[in-house]
Every structure is written in C-alpha cells, then in structure tokens.
C-alpha cells in the first residue's frame, strides 16, 4: 500500500473555531476544580500536621486514597457510580470539577504540609514569644512565607490538573479533547486536529507557567 504523508493545513486551521468551543469547559473544570482543591488542600494539609491523631488520621486517609487512585477512575466513579447511591444523575461538568477538586486536593494537601513544615521553627517561636496567638502566628508569620515557597509546586499541580481534564472526554463533557473527537468523526483529519488540540493545551499551560513565573518573581522580592 502506498501511503503518502500529507499534512492538511486547511483542515487543521478550519478545526480551530470548533475546538475553541471546548476551551471554556476545559478552563472551567480545571480552575473550578483547582480552586476547590486548593481549599481542600489547605484544610487537609493542616489537619495532616495536627498533633491531634483523630484529626490527622482522616487527613492521611483522604490523601492516600485520592492520590493513590487514578483520576479517570475517580471521575467514572462520580459520574456513573455515585448516581446509584444518590438516586439521581450527576451532571458531567459537576463530576469533572469534583474529580479535579478531590484529586488535586490530595496533592495540594501534601504541598501545603511541606510548605508549612519548611518554615524554620524559630519563626513560630519568635511570633509566639511576642504574644501572638497560634492562629495569628500562622496567619501573619508562617502562612505568607509558606505560601511563597509553595508557588512552584502549586503551578506544577495546576498544569497536571489541566491536562487531567482531557480524560473527562469519556464522560461526554464537551471539553477540548471531546470537541476534537467529534470534529474528527466527521472530517477524519485526526493528525491535524489532535495536533491543534495539543497546541491549545500548550497555550493554556504556557500561559499559566508564565503567570506563575511573574508571581514568583514578584514574591521573591519579599524574601
């Protein structure tokens, strides 16, 4: 069989308007999930280092379970499994956001733990010795420094979660990959369209990297 490779630029470019309709979903699932995941991460990251065992142990369990199982399985469980428990359907978009939230939340918990534990003990001692409460010490002294150290790892997690949303094409949410698949089903231009899909992911992740680099540079002035 004679296969002549030909890249069809026309097909690639004309797919873009359709692919762009997937971007809002990709962004909504990524950043919605990450925002909730960040809140989960702060809560469980701090519980994880609590001296109180009955606070610490559930946090460890949560982190290990959601870090140790694939995000694809998590979203399938939420989308197909959970309805059997709650007796009603779960919206695909909600399932996607929830999956990113619980999955990134587990990783961010560990990032928060590492960030907080990396602050020298003397910082806490100095703030307590001035009469600050434990809460004030954390809020005004420990957290601002810990957060700055967490930025690179948080950026990493953000990029991973954005790419993870591509798996959610399997539950039919109209994100980037799903839109690509639909387009290919009618045009058969898989090479061109998947390349465009990849480029669009790269555009999102590079923008995030750049934004974080700026934030980090601004933050580093304070170190």
């Amino acid at each position: 069989m004679d296969v002549t490779f030909q890249f069809d630029w026309q097909a690639a470019i004309s797919s873009i308007p359709y692919l762009l309709t997937g971007i809002p979903y990709t962004l909504l699932i990524s950043f919605g999930g990450l925002a909730i995941g960040f809140l989960i991460g702060i809560l469980f990251g701090l519980l994880r280092i609590s001296p109180v065992a009955w606070l610490r142990i559930p946090a460890i369990a949560y982190i290990e379970i959601f870090r140790g199982t694939p995000v694809l399985v998590q979203v399938l469980f939420i989308f197909y499994g959970l309805p059997q428990i709650i007796g009603g359907p779960v919206n695909a978009l909600v399932a996607g956001i929830a999956a990113i939230a619980v999955n990134s939340g587990a990783y961010i918990s560990e990032i928060v733990r590492g960030g907080v534990q990396s602050i020298e003990r003397g910082q806490r001692e100095a703030s307590l010795s001035l009469g600050l409460s434990r809460t004030q010490s954390f809020r005004y002294v420990i957290w601002p420094q810990a957060f700055r150290r967490m930025i690179p790892s948080l950026g990493n997690q953000g990029i991973i979660s954005i790419k993870d949303t591509s798996l959610f094409s399997v539950i039919g949410v109209g994100e980037l990959v799903r839109q690509g698949q639909i387009y290919i089903a009618t045009t058969f231009s898989a090479l061109e369209v998947y390349l465009m899909v990849a480029m669009l992911y790269l555009a999102i992740t590079l923008s995030l990297s750049l934004a974080l680099r700026l934030l980090e540079r601004k933050g580093l002035v304070g170190q």
């Binding site: 910082q123 001692e125 100095a126 001035l130 004030q136 170190q223």
Partner: peptide, 27 residues
C-alpha cells in the same frame, strides 16, 4: 516577657518596621 534569639528570627517577609509593629497592632 520579651525574647531575643540566637538566630534573630526576624520575619523575612516583613519590612524592619513591620517586624516591630506586628505584635503591638495584632496583640
């Protein structure tokens, strides 16, 4: 009771002045 430490333990993210005003304002 005030304390001065061997390693100073100043708050590196705050200006010198803010290091000094933090506790009076918050506490």
């Amino acid at each position: 009771v005030g304390m001065v430490f061997q390693q100073f333990n100043l708050f590196p993210h705050l200006s010198v002045r803010d290091n000094v005003t933090l506790a009076p304002i918050k506490v």
